[in-house]
Design a protein around this nucleic acid. Structure first.
Lengths: 346, 346
DNA sequence: TCGAATGGCGCAAACGTTTGTGCAATTTTT
DNA sequence: AAAAATTGCACAAACGTTTGCGCCATTCGA
C-alpha cells in the first residue's frame, strides 16, 4: 500500500485533482491560493498513505535552489574536522539542508576541482577549510553567486568571510606558558606554508618569543603539513641538533602524535626530558602517558557560526558584502606535559 | 571571459550549433553520432573558454541518476566512522560520485527520516551504519530500487548486504587474551542493545568465557551506548562491586576513554590495579599512560568493499539479490594495558 | 435581477538536460 | 546518371516540479 506513488502527477490522478493543487497544498501554500480545508486534508493524507515524497531534484531544477551545502575539508579523519563536520551537519539539517562532504586531502588542485564539482551540483553555498593562500579560485565563485565561507583557515586580504580560532592568540598563549615555565629553546613544528592557521600560529609563537626577548632560532622551526609523519620526522631532526630544544610546540593534533612516537622511539619521556604543548585539544589528551597541555579551539562555535553566516547569505540571495572575519578565542588547558625548569616569579 | 555561459543553450548559441550536438560532444558521444572532429574540438574549447560546466541537477532529473551516494553514520565525530567516511569519499569520487553525509546520532528515528530524505534527493545508493535491529525501514527501500549496503553493523537475517569486521572473532580474541593472562573476573562494557556490532562482540566475549569454563556474571556486563559517558558510568558501577573485576573489555573506543576517566578519578592505574582491552585501535592508543591493547578493525577495507559492492549494485541497475555478508578479520594488538596475573603455561 | 466579488481549482510554461528520430547535403556505388 | 549509402547535424519530447494567470461557479450587495 505504501511507496506506490512516485510523482505528483500520479498522486493528483488518484485524487482527481490537478498537480497544481497538490503541489500547493504540500508546500503549505493552500491558504494563499484559497484551497479548501477539505481538499487540503485529502491531499495530505493521500500523500502519507501512498508514501509520496517530493523529488528534490526536480524541485531543485525548477527553484534553482537545492537546499544542499558543500563542505570541503582537508582531512575528515582529523578529529578536529570530524567534529566540526558533525556540528555543521546537525545545524544544517535543522534548517532543512543536506551536506555534501568533500575531502581535499590538503591538495589545492583537488580543492579547485571540488569547488567546480559543487558548483555543477548547484549547492546553495559552500563551507571551506581552504588549503592555499590564494583566493582566486574562490573569489571566482562569488561571481557565480554561490556564497562561500571559510573555516579554520582564511585568505589574507580577501573578501571571503571566515570563522577561525584566534590562532595567533592561541599560539602566543602556548608559547608564553612554556616561557613562563622557564623554557628558552622552544621548537615549533608547523603545517603547510600555504595555510593561514599554520602561519598565524607561527606568528603567535614568534611574537611571544620576541615579547620575552628570546632569539628566534630558525633551525627550531620546521614542518610542511599537519600529518603525523611530519611531526615524527621533524622531532627526529630536532633531537639531532647540537643543542636540543627543551620544549616542542606542536601546531596540530596529528603532529603531536608524531612527536610522541619520535620521543618514544628515542627513549625520551615527557616532561622529564622534553616538554610539549599541542594546538588542538582532543578527548584523549588527558589520558596520555603524560597528560598533554593543549590549546582548545571552540569547534562547535566555529561550526555554528559558519552555518549561520552562510545560511544568511544564502537566504539573502546575495553574497555577504562586507568582509566578515571572526576569530574566536582559544583556551589554554594546562596538564602535565610541560616541565617547570625555573621557579616561577610571581 | 570566464564563467559567462551558464547553460548549454547559451553555449550552443555562441557556437551556432544545436544543444543536441553540444551535449553529445560533451558526453563523449561525438563519434557515435558522427559529429565531425572539427566541430568536436570547437565545442570542447568553447566550453573551456566560457567556463561551462553541466548542470548536474538537470542532468540528474533527465537521467534519473544523480551520481550521488548517501552515507548515514551514527556519529561522524567518532574516529572510526570519520576514517571510514574518508575512504568512502575518496573511493566514490574516483568513480565520479559525490557523498551526502548524514549523522543519525544513534537514533533510529533520525535514521528513518534520513533514509526518506536521501530517497527524496534521489541518491543512487546508500551506505548505512544502522542503529536498530529491525530492517523494515531499510527493506522498504529496496522496493524503491535504491541499493543499500550496511557497514559496521547489519540486520540479522535480512536481505541487506553488509560489510563488517568479524566482531564475534575480535571479541573472542580480546577475551581469550585476557583469560590467557590469568584473568577470570572480566567485565564487558558494551554499546546499545539494538546494534549488531555490540551484540556480536558480547557474544564473542561470552563464547570465550564459556570455552574456558568461566562463569558469566551478569553484573559484569553492562552499557547502553558507544559514548564516553557510558564507559565512565559503567566503570564506576563496576568499581563499586563487592568483588571488582580484574579486567575490563571496552567494546568501543569512546567507551574506553570513559573507562580511563573513571579509573583516573578513582586513582586506579592500568594495568597495575585493573587491566583493559579495547575494541577499535586508534592512532593515540600507543601513547596512552598505559599503551592500550586493542582490537584493530580493517577500516579501509570495510570502506572500500562497501563502495565496490554498492556501485556494482548501482550500475547493475538492480538490487544485489543474493544475501551478501562479508566479515573481515580483526587483529589483536598487544601493548601494556593487560597485566599478566598468572604465569603463562605454554 | 444583475453585476461584482469571492471561493476553488486547473492550464501550461519553464527550469537545463539527454536522446530517439529525422532530414538535408554530400559521397559512394552501380 | 540515378540510386544508395554515408556524413553531419537539428527538432522536440521528456524528466518532475513550481507558479503566473485564468476560468467557472457560487454568493453577495444593491
Amino acid at each position: 500500500m505504501e511507496g506506490n506513488v512516485s510523482n505528483i502527477k500520479e498522486l493528483a490522478g488518484r485524487l482527481g485533482l490537478s498537480v497544481t493543487t497538490v503541489s500547493r497544498v504540500l508546500n503549505g501554500k493552500a491558504a494563499a491560493h484559497r484551497i479548501s480545508e477539505a481538499t487540503s486534508r485529502r491531499v495530505v493524507s493521500a500523500a502519507a498513505e501512498f508514501g509520496y515524497s517530493v523529488n528534490r531534484i526536480a524541485r531543485g531544477l525548477k527553484l534553482e535552489r537545492t537546499e544542499t551545502i558543500g563542505l570541503i575539508v582537508p582531512d575528515i579523519s582529523n578529529p578536529f574536522f570530524a567534529s566540526v563536520a558533525k556540528t555543521i551537519e546537525m545545524e544544517l539539517r535543522k534548517q532543512g539542508y543536506s551536506l555534501i562532504l568533500c575531502d581535499s586531502q590538503d591538495d589545492p588542485g583537488s580543492e579547485k576541482e571540488l569547488l567546480e564539482l559543487l558548483a555543477g551540483r548547484k549547492v546553495d553555498g559552500i563551507i571551506l577549510a581552504p588549503v592555499g593562500l590564494s583566493c582566486d579560485h574562490v573569489c571566482h565563485f562569488r561571481n557565480r553567486k554561490i556564497p562561500v565561507v571559510a573555516i579554520d583557515r582564511y585568505f589574507p586580504g580577501s573578501p571571503v568571510p571566515y570563522i577561525t580560532c584566534d590562532n595567533y592568540l592561541g599560539a602566543y598563549m602556548a608559547t608564553e606558558h612554556l616561557i613562563k615555565s622557564g623554557h628558552r629553546r622552544i621548537a615549533c613544528i608547523h603545517g603547510p606554508e600555504g595555510v593561514s592557521s599554520s602561519q598565524d600560529r607561527i606568528a603567535g609563537y614568534m611574537a611571544a618569543l620576541r615579547k620575552f626577548r628570546i632569539r628566534i632560532r630558525h633551525q627550531l622551526v620546521g614542518g610542511h603539513d599537519f600529518g603525523e609523519e611530519n611531526g615524527y620526522l621533524e622531532t627526529l631532526r630536532l633531537l639531532k641538533l647540537k643543542k636540543r630544544p627543551t620544549a616542542i610546540f606542536a601546531l596540530g593534533n596529528l603532529i603531536s602524535l608524531g612527536v610522541l612516537r619520535a620521543l618514544q622511539d628515542s627513549g625520551l619521556s615527557i616532561p622529564k626530558d622534553i616538554s610539549l604543548v599541542t594546538f588542538d585539544e582532543q578527548p584523549y589528551s588527558a589520558y596520555l602517558r603524560s597528560p598533554m597541555t593543549t590549546i582548545e579551539q571552540p569547534r562547535e562555535e566555529i561550526a555554528r557560526k559558519a552555518v549561520s553566516i552562510l545560511l544568511e547569505a544564502v537566504t539573502a540571495g546575495d553574497i555577504i558584502d562586507s568582509t566578515i572575519g571572526i576569530q574566536l578565542s582559544p583556551r589554554l588547558i594546562v596538564r602535565d606535559s610541560v616541565r617547570n625548569i625555573k621557579p616561577v616569579k610571581s
